[in-house]
Design a protein around this nucleic acid. Structure first.
Lengths: 220, 220
DNA sequence: TCGGCTGTTGTTGTGCACAACATGGCCGTG
DNA sequence: CACGGCCATGTTGTGCACAACAACAGCCGA
């Protein structure tokens, strides 16, 4: 059976541009309301508008931007109510990672969990919102990779990137040091669960922290 | 606040074409492996390739087709293992509809549930696979509309259309009359729950039937 | 001074021509 | 006859020119 998911040049570029723009939006390099110029971006990435427009179309499907004829492609802002409901779903999905087709426990997982805990401690010595956000993103991917259920992974990712901005945007209004400390404790609890070989417990811990994270967001 | 979700001409056409092609794929008018010609489809819908390509790009993101340079745009086939995992997730999401931001009970919902039960009885008198599939599709949308959680609705829909084909494809290998009878009993049970004003029970019933549906698919 | 009109500018949407690519048939050669 | 190279054909991907559209500044008239 041929591999239909092969990375042709075009597909590779598409994924690269998509990933790059998504990260810029979620790290607030392009804050909500910012206008993305197709021509400028095409120039930056060395292509014409055509391939770039496909990337923007996907970002629009994902709810990160919206294109308006004659106006521009604007980074969306997020409604707090919709964000609350999205967090509700993210919380449930995080729990499902531990129950639906979990991956078997391996040393590689343990190593990675240890590395996250170590990096968390590094972060605590020099807290930085942007680095925090980036590490949170990597930690999310670590958690999503603990299920072999493709649909669950894909859905979790979609929703994560949809809420990531609200989280980073709220950091200035909150206590960065305290948030880093909470994140570090999550990484440590996660490591403990994984050291016990209990991936389901690890999923429950991530679930609990997603829940608490939004509680702090809404309250702050 | 302006309404950014306005239906401009281009967006309206996009949604129309997307919906049309998705339905053709899920009703097996375009069976797995079929080649969709951009030029032919563009001609049929009276546009150029450009807007149509955006529709195909979205269908590719949704996993319903795959475009290969120099070959064509092919309708995907589905792996049974991945389908099993997708059904796992669909089952869980169906239950969440009853717990996350359910809509308040209204007479309109009751009326619609009654109508589905009646239509189910009509279908039983003259079983037809295609009509069966179409009604199942409408019933799915009815169920998804019972939550106000946009992310949950959107995700459920995405996964539904990803599995709908496998279901219809298996119908010939199964007993159509028996399947219609089972579907009718689901509609009746759903109606009973809704008559009691218990939308959560209705969600649990739909959840149970999604679970049983895949069990029959895998066993048959 | 205010309101409306209009031209200008910049943006996204569309259509088209061509490039890049895969496939199958054909032909020549061993 | 088998096989390998080559070309013809049809497909998707790209770049570009222009259409459609929205916003804004400037101007004119009341």
């Amino acid at each position: 059976m041929p591999d239909y998911t092969q990375d042709t040049d075009a597909r590779e570029r598409f994924l690269r541009l998509h990933s790059a723009l998504r990260e810029r939006i979620c790290l607030l390099d392009y804050p909500p309301g910012a206008r993305l110029s197709e021509e400028v971006l095409a120039g930056e990435f060395g292509t014409s508008r055509t391939p770039l427009r496909r990337v923007l179309a996907r970002l629009e499907d994902e709810g990160l931007v919206i294109s308006r004829h004659g106006v521009g492609t604007l980074v969306t802002d997020v409604d707090i109510g919709e964000m609350a409901r999205t967090y509700d779903l993210r919380r449930e999905l995080a729990g499902l990672v531990g129950r639906l087709s979990p991956v078997p426990m391996t040393d590689a997982i343990l190593t990675e969990a240890r590395r996250f805990a170590d990096r968390g401690r590094m972060l605590q010595t020099a807290p930085d919102a942007r680095e925090f956000a980036r590490m949170n993103m990597e930690y999310f991917h670590f958690g999503a990779a603990l299920t072999t259920n493709e649909a669950l992974r894909e859905t979790s990712e979609r929703l994560y990137y949809r809420t990531a901005r609200i989280w980073l945007k709220s950091i200035p209004r909150m206590d960065l040091h305290a948030e880093v400390a909470i994140f570090l404790s999550e990484l440590d609890q996660n490591l403990t669960a994984i050291e016990n070989g209990d991936l389901m417990a690890a999923a429950l811990i991530r679930q609990a922290h997603i829940s608490m994270c939004f509680t702090r967001l809404a309250g702050g």
